[in-house]
């Protein structure tokens, strides 16, 4: 049963932030809110005010500029992202990820800002975006701040958002030349939530050696887990399948998954290793072109 609340529908971003300022800890922001409503229905969340920002047009945009990179407004829906031509062209991994995020109905209604603010470690966008070195812009009535998405994700369902703050924009830098990025989750049903997931982004230098790399694991801990040991291992190295296998081993050691009914911790570690190996290999091949 959902507890009673007052529904507020600010007509502009400014009004939204004023409302947030006014109601502070008595309110909760909804921006799509399909996951939020599940929690509310369980009676796990009680709030006096629900501030709906989904319809705020100011935050519904996709901008791309080769220099400044990609900017996605917080209220942009998943389906808008997966069908955006500039994203298809410049960030195919985002399209692939969004495409498998959930069913079409959920992608039609859910927003990128809502997803990230929910802080579910099994959510798909965060891992991929961290691999792509994304930043996130948040703000309140007093102003805005930008932080890395990695720092934004704090814990199970917890983000760095402070009271009165909302997500405004996701910023993804333009990938360097010779960059490949991949993402895959392990599940038994297409487009289901992943038991675990891995994202990899590999950038090669002129000599075909690894210039930069990121490996980020989803549902592998209380927040997306970046495997820095793998990144160190690969930097400066050439294509080598043994190396990918080694990277997989490291990933399965460095992640912090937990047991639940779907898989044991041990199985999750194993899968994360396999996915890391596969994603690195694919990303590398993509980077080679």
């Amino acid at each position: 049963m959902i507890h009673d609340f007052t529904y507020l529908k600010p007509s502009s971003l400014k009004e939204a932030l004023t409302m947030l300022e006014e109601h502070k800890d008595d309110c909760k922001v909804i921006c799509g809110g399909q996951s939020l409503l599940i929690i509310m229905r369980q009676g796990l969340l009680v709030t006096d005010y629900l501030i709906d920002i989904k319809h705020i047009k100011e935050l519904d945009y996709i901008q791309f500029d080769a220099k400044a990179g990609l900017k996605i407004g917080a209220t942009t829906t998943h389906h808008t992202i997966e069908t955006s031509d500039v994203i298809k062209k410049n960030y195919p991994v985002l399209v692939a990820m969004e495409n498998k995020l959930a069913s079409i109905q959920v992608r039609n209604w859910g927003t990128i800002g809502g997803n990230l603010a929910h802080g579910d470690p099994s959510g798909d966008p965060a891992s991929v975006l961290i691999a792509l070195k994304a930043n996130i812009k948040v703000g309140n009535a007093k102003g805005g701040r930008t932080l890395t998405l990695e720092d934004f994700c704090v814990d199970f369902f917890e983000t760095a958002l402070e009271e009165g703050e909302i997500v405004l924009e996701v910023q993804v830098p333009t990938p360097e030349a010779k960059t490949g990025a991949t993402y895959q989750k392990f599940n038994l049903l297409e487009s289901d939530q992943g038991m675990v997931a891995a994202a990899a982004a590999v950038t090669l230098n002129g000599g075909g050696k690894c210039k930069d790399v990121r490996v980020v694991l989803g549902n592998a801990g209380p927040k997306p887990v970046r495997i820095k040991r793998v990144e160190e291992l690969l930097r400066g190295k050439g294509y080598d399948e043994k190396l990918f296998a080694e990277a997989g081993k490291i990933a399965s050691e460095d992640c912090e998954p937990v047991t639940d009914i779907h898989a044991s911790e041990e199985h999750r570690r194993h899968l994360l290793g396999v996915l890391t190996k596969r994603m690195l290999k694919q990303a590398w091949e993509q980077a080679k072109g």
Partner: peptide
Amino acid sequence: LMNPNLVDYKMIRATE
């Protein structure tokens, strides 16, 4: 019962 909902109780869908 640990999965009394259709999120955690997995069933065949059109794609499977």
